[in-house]
Amino acid sequence: MYSRILISAIFAGAAAGLVAGILQLIFVQPVLLHAELYESGELVHFGGIANSADPALPGFDVMRDGLSLIFTMLIYTGYALLMIAMMNIAEERGAQIDGRWGIIWGVAGFVAFHLAPGFTLAPEVPGVAAADVTARQIWWFATVISAAIAMWLLAFGGNWVMWGAAAVLLMAPHLIGAPEPDSFTGPVPTEIGALFAARALGVGLAAWVLLGCFAGFFWQREGRHADAAARA
């Protein structure tokens, strides 16, 4: 069982993470680099001359972007370990797990890990004003855990009490509120910040749907291998 979980998580996480990393390099990285020109003061928003919204940006940087790809694959492997652990328990309880059902698992994972925390702490471009990072990380983890429990209750709770509890878990972190900065000092134009948040969430959804699909597929496949080995 350990090897089935590890093997399927590594395959699913590495594959989905690779796609996520490439999509981020294509769609998110240029927006991030653009924002960094304002963060560093190379471009100035307001007060100076109007800037072109289409500046020249550095291209592919082997070291920087290569590390990004590797770290994205690692993060998605971490996600895959969590998702496959839960798939394992769901299957024990009678749920069907395969590539098609994995798509729904992926959407649920996206809600728990990206949409729920991003609903209040929107994905940040470099240079935005933000509260203390440790406080934000605690809020992030608490929100992700409560949203993940909520998604499980929505899927497997089976009665109105559980669904009600899920709604409370989904809303509570946002009603309580995340750590916010005392004042806004971000030098980055709002257009870039909004585009960045939208792109980050969009790439996240695509990557999570793939992750769920791959996780279900490899979980099935490794299970068949294990059964065949047990019979042989």
């Binding site: 981020q24 990206h114 991003g118 994905p123 990072v133 980050a200």
Partner: peptide, 9 residues
């Protein structure tokens, strides 16, 4: 870059 693009603090 990944932390920003993934929406982590």
């Amino acid at each position: 870059d990944v932390r920003h693009a993934t929406g982590f603090p």
